[in-house]
Amino acid sequence: MNRFTWSVLMAVVAIVGSGWVYLTRVPSDAETVARVAAHVDFRAPAFTLTALDGKSISLNDGRGKIVLVNFWATWCPPCRSEMPDIQAAYLAHRSEFIVLAINQSESDEAVKQFADEFHLTFPLLLDRDGAVSRQFQVQALPTSFFIDRAGVIRAANLGPMNRAYLEAQIAALGATR
């Protein structure tokens, strides 16, 4: 192939490629967060559960605040390891940060004992039939979702979180220190 033919080929690729990139732009009026799904950049599925103290708590109660939805169980070692950090982050940002820790199908007694052991003061919700876990497609514990003030999932994490990760996510969602 001679140089001229190659140059023409390159020009064609550049023009067609640029045209394709232009034509397939994301429209400015596209509704970026329309659907509900348990995934980053989607609206979080709504739920209402009973807390350990008998109160009924809904995800929508946290609208306007940063919400951490954390799925856990007492028998799960990584869940145990991250709980003190979650509690510390909750205490540090409680005016604008809510933790909804959803226990998977364990007895009230086991959950209460766990709360006492780790001195947890945020709501511990009881997902007795596992419906909310299924709604969030939880396949391993712990699983956490960070939800912004508008109810959109902005980060998801499988496995234990540490204080630095929690602080970074909370800061990313606009918390003041």
Partner: peptide
Amino acid sequence: VLPGGYRTTQVIALGVLIAALWLLGKSVT
């Protein structure tokens, strides 16, 4: 996306494509 709705990966990939073709042309021609 970049300002104007351009998809970031497409823009970067197009740049790499043109650069690779330019360099490739030196050996092919």
